[in-house]
Nucleic acid binder design. Structure first.
Lengths: 222, 222
DNA sequence: TCAATGCAACTGTGATCACAGACGTCTTCA
DNA sequence: TGAAGACGTCTGTGATCACAGTTGCATTGA
């Protein structure tokens, strides 16, 4: 049985919303893998609720293409084609680039310590081959920055992209030898933010968002 | 009773999906107005189905913030605050700008006649004060272009933005004297696409996406 | 031994019911 | 005449059941 009263899940009165949020995070950090089946009744049993809230959560995820569902067949985590993955990373680079440029205007002095903490977490997770923790720290690093853009709509949209690329990234990381440049542009992004250099922050963020695409290149050529 | 077997709605086996698509278009063209209540049982009766498919459609729309729902209260069309509207139009300008730049690479010779047809439709609708038709033609013009970017993920995300700005635009248009520049940058965008000038297409599209923001300026200052 | 067939256990989907909280109106009392 | 309280109606939400189509395994036949 999966408990839903974790602190991180907002205490909405709604069962559906909590299951939805929980599954979303599982997708972001790669706890659900491409092509994995998720069934309404199984999840309902895991969460110890009826099928009702689960089916609504799954339908929502399917509508934002975080899951795929065919008629009378189990929902599945999508198996992204090369072009689909490239498309997602392209949108991410466009939006995260714009967000980083805006974030320069709102970033606060104490934020940099937090951002550096996420980098340390990524480093530790990478050393332990812990893909989930690595992806979570990576997400939190990026998420923290584009939250500082002060545009809630943009923030939600980028979140949706992480949900969709998460399983695919996790698959790539575990099936791959360590890339030498796992840090991406993260440290340089912090520098640009500290220097309030919006143009530079944008460029670096656009480049970093393509890190996932690089991963794919190595995957498909190996 | 509202019929769902219109040609435009894809013949998915799913009732929920068809109701979802129908409501989405109603939002895009402003058939549902800000703050309007939409109730599960009322819609179920209108569509002549049970509450089940409707509640799933409404929940989906709420999850993408095309509707808002409080506990035990009817779902409502959101009444956007000035900053929320500005945020949406900003994201639209970023994404549609990038899409227009890509569209230059894929646009076909016969496309321009279609695009000009949409402009004529906008002109006619404007002359008849038909806000729904105006918004539909405007949506189809833009939609046609960003579909040509060849990025399905980006296309779906921009679609979602039109769903959210639709009711607000309709409200602005009907409560406003005609702006003199209703055409926006549409004709110039066609020129840029024809000249395969990606940079220009991007600039014009970014500017045009802010047309809605202009509308708001006039609204709030009147 | 292998392939074809059938059955059993799964899948999502729609309908229906029970429930609790919100809202508005109408009545009643001061 | 006014305000306060109660009741009926409407809201979304969760649970449960029936149904039909899919899948995969086991059995049976050649």
């Amino acid at each position: 049985m999966i408990s839903l009263d974790a602190q991180e899940i907002s205490a909405t009165a709604n069962l559906s919303a909590r299951i939805y949020a929980d599954l979303r995070m599982k997708l972001i950090i790669g706890d659900l893998r491409p092509n994995e089946a998720v069934s309404i009744r199984t999840l309902a049993s895991d969460y110890n609720v009826s099928a009702m809230p689960v089916r609504e959560a799954l339908r929502q995820l399917a509508s934002e293409e975080a899951l795929v569902g065919a008629a009378k067949k189990a929902y599945r985590v999508p198996n992204l084609s090369p072009s689909q993955a490239a498309n997602l990373f392209f949108v991410r680079s466009v939006l995260e680039g714009a967000a980083a440029e805006l974030a320069v205007l709102n970033i606060r002095k104490g934020d940099f310590k937090i951002l550096k903490k996420f980098i340390v977490q990524m480093e530790n997770a990478w050393a332990k081959n812990d893909a989930s923790s690595f992806l979570r720290a990576n997400y939190e690093f990026h998420s923290f920055i584009y939250a500082r853009a002060g545009n809630a709509a943009m923030q939600a949209i980028i979140d949706g992209l992480y949900v969709r690329t998460g399983p695919w990234l996790a698959h790539g990381i575990v099936n791959l030898v360590k890339p030498d440049h796992w840090l991406g542009e993260h440290t340089r992004i912090i520098d640009a933010l500290q220097n309030r250099d919006g143009q530079k922050a944008r460029e670096l963020m656009e480049k970093d968002a393509k890190w996932g695409s690089d991963l794919y290149q190595r995957l498909s050529s190996s």
